[in-house]
């Protein structure tokens, strides 16, 4: 469990980092290393060059304004947990990130690393997709923005080009009064979940659901929104009947893979359980 030999550089500017990455097709970027280091130790990843972003300035800020929240790529889970502004600015994000792995991992794991690694069960990609967030990528050809829903293409695969570095995640503005929930299930706390769901919605004057967003992680090859469930919820009053209908719809529309721990049928049922419990809890709590 010793990594294969690699070169190491810690450039001082983003430009330098991008140029280094472009210059070597076997190079990889490292930030917190919480996904990459195990892959290196197991020799599942054998990059020729590791480009460490630790010296690149301007990647570690959490900016909050009327347009939403900007998370720099090197923002760590701990930074999000510790930022009291997010209690109102984005309670769903804060609550979800508190459930990432264990605190040792949250002390080092980063926003950009999680997005680039693209584990189908990872929490932040799920929030990004559910909330219609946008990623900023910087490459040799310049800067581009990609919607989170378009960014993830499968397990551990994204549309990021080799020379591109994720610099920021932009989550749209979170209005007050939203109802929301995050639920995930793993046999042991802190493991990647067997399935997870994130959801939020607003309410019209009469209390009918408006603008429902429902996302799922772990139970499909990439984080996804469950559009049918959202359509079902919009314009209706939340009651036990609707909750059960939504749960059944989620089980029907999600497309889980078979794997060694869990048959697909179980993951479908688990998603339904989490949707049901999430909606029930959301109906009881409203964000400030």
């Amino acid at each position: 469990m010793k990594p294969a030999p690699f070169e190491y550089q810690a450039p001082a500017t983003l430009r330098e980092a991008v140029d280094l990455l472009a210059s070597d097709p076997e190079a990889m970027v490292i930030a917190g290393g919480q996904s990459l280091m195990p892959l290196l130790a197991l020799r599942l990843a054998t990059p020729s060059l590791l480009i460490d972003l630790r010296r690149v300035p301007g990647l570690d800020a959490i900016a909050i304004d009327d347009s939403g929240i900007r998370l720099g790529a090197r923002v760590r889970w701990r930074d999000i947990e510790d930022d009291r502004r997010l209690e109102t600015a984005h309670p769903l994000l804060r609550e979800t990130i508190a459930q990432v792995a264990h605190y040792q991992i949250r002390n080092r794991g980063t926003v950009g690393g999680s997005l680039a690694h693209a584990d189908p069960a990872a929490e932040l990609p799920g929030i990004a997709v559910t909330c219609d967030a946008e990623l900023t990528l910087v490459g040799v050809a310049g800067t581009r923005m990609v919607r989170a829903g378009d960014f993830f293409t499968g397990p551990l695969t994204t549309v990021r080009q080799h020379d591109e570095i994720i610099t920021e995640l932009h989550l749209p503005f979170w209005p007050s009064g939203r109802r929301w929930a995050f639920r995930e299930f793993a046999q042991r706390r802190g493991d990647f979940s067997l399935a997870g769901i994130a959801l939020f919605y607003g309410e019209d004057q009469e209390g009918r659901v408006a603008n429902a967003h429902v996302g799922v992680i772990g139970a499909c090859d990439r984080p996804q929104r469950l559009m049918e469930v959202e359509a079902l919820l919009n314009g209706r009053f939340i009651d036990e009947g609707l909750i059960r209908e939504a749960a059944e719809t989620s089980a029907r529309t999600v497309d889980p893979p078979e794997d060694l721990h869990v048959p697909a049928a179980y993951r479908r049922a688990l998603v339904a359980t989490l949707i049901e419990r999430g909606l029930r809890s959301a109906a009881q709590h409203r964000s400030a």
């Binding site: 299930f185 046999q187 721990h261 869990v262 048959p263 049928a265 179980y266 049922a269 688990l270």
Partner: peptide, 11 residues
């Protein structure tokens, strides 16, 4: 008695 196996007992 994994979660999937226990779930199946009820399903």
């Amino acid at each position: 008695l994994s979660p999937a196996r226990v779930w199946r007992m009820g399903a």
